[in-house]
Computed example of a mutant assay.
Amino acid sequence: MQRWGVPLLGCIPDRPFLGCPALADLERLFDTRLIGGGRHRFRHYRVPDINLVTTSLKRFLENVRQKPSRTLYVSHVTRDDIILGFLGEYTRLKRRGVPFESALILCGRENKYDVCPQILDILKDPELADVPIMIAKMSTHDAMGAMRTLTPKLNIGDNHRVEIAVEHYEPHIDFELLLERTSSPVPLSEEEVMEAATRSSTLGAAAETAAAAAVASTEAVLS
């Protein structure tokens, strides 16, 4: 870079957390909204902690109690047993005063699979309003693939991620050099700014006039 005269403004090491999707990122990805647990919208999940449920209810409950508390489970919408088991585990921990940080994504191709109406009524029960669950109108295979290739973006409402990003980036960027390279060496006066704006407007009008004349000339030839 020195050979080419390109200044090095900074070298930022990787920070895995910044690549962890929040539930809000998944809402945008799947074009959906959380059925419950809206206040946990900016809770983040590591990609390795996204778990596709393909086991029996017994094995699923064993996994829930063994895996990290903040695990994101993906299941098919027709797995009523898994949905009820997930809600049951939430209720069990809530009674004990233990935080429940897992979330559940229910997948099913649109117009082919859907959540059982009775199960949907249970999900909307006020007593379960704090359980993070969302529905993705696609197959579990497509949903898993989409999440693994997702690059989360900074969201102004995600204060935690923004704060960590600022703390992480700031020490590794030469802001003085950045400002030096991006600032005008001689600040423009108000008159110069107005003159530049007028010149730009005049050139734009001239271009429009020339384009209109060209169109009119072409139409005359064709007629």
Rank of each mutant, 00 (worst) to 15 (best):
M1H: 11
M1Q: 11
R3W: 11
G5S: 08
V6Y: 12
P13E: 08
R15S: 09
F17Q: 13
P21G: 04
A24V: 02
D25A: 03
L26R: 05
L26F: 09
L26M: 15
E27C: 14
R28G: 08
L29I: 06
F30Y: 12
R33N: 09
L34T: 07
G36C: 05
G36M: 05
H40E: 15
R41Q: 15
F42P: 03
H44D: 07
R46F: 08
P48C: 06
V53S: 01
L57P: 04
K58I: 08
K58C: 00
F60A: 06
F60R: 03
F60P: 02
E62K: 10
V64N: 01
R65I: 01
R65T: 02
K67T: 06
P68L: 04
R70H: 01
L72G: 01
Y73D: 01
D80M: 06
D80Y: 01
D81L: 04
I83R: 01
I83W: 03
L84E: 10
L84P: 01
L87I: 10
G88H: 02
G88W: 01
G88F: 02
G88E: 00
T91E: 15
T91H: 14
R92T: 04
R92D: 11
L93Q: 15
G97D: 05
V98T: 11
P99C: 02
E101P: 00
A103Q: 06
A103P: 05
L106I: 01
R109Y: 08
E110D: 14
N111F: 12
K112I: 11
K112H: 10
V115K: 07
P117G: 07
P117H: 10
Q118C: 02
L120T: 00
L120G: 00
D121M: 06
I122F: 09
P126L: 11
E127A: 09
L128R: 13
A129H: 07
P132T: 06
P132D: 07
I133S: 04
M134T: 05
K137E: 15
M138L: 15
A146S: 11
A146L: 13
M147N: 04
M147E: 07
L150S: 03
L150K: 07
T151K: 15
K153E: 15
N159W: 05
E163I: 01
I164C: 00
A165K: 00
V166C: 05
V166I: 13
Y169M: 14
E170Q: 11
H172W: 14
H172A: 10
I173R: 08
L177S: 03
L177F: 04
L178A: 13
L179H: 09
E180M: 06
T182F: 10
S183Q: 14
S183C: 13
S184D: 13
V186H: 12
L188K: 11
S189N: 05
S189P: 01
E191M: 08
E191L: 07
M194L: 12
E195A: 10
E195Q: 10
T198A: 13
S200Y: 12
S200E: 15
T202V: 08
A207E: 14
A207C: 00
T209C: 01
T209S: 08
V215Q: 12
V215A: 12
S217Q: 13
T218H: 08
A220L: 10
L222M: 07
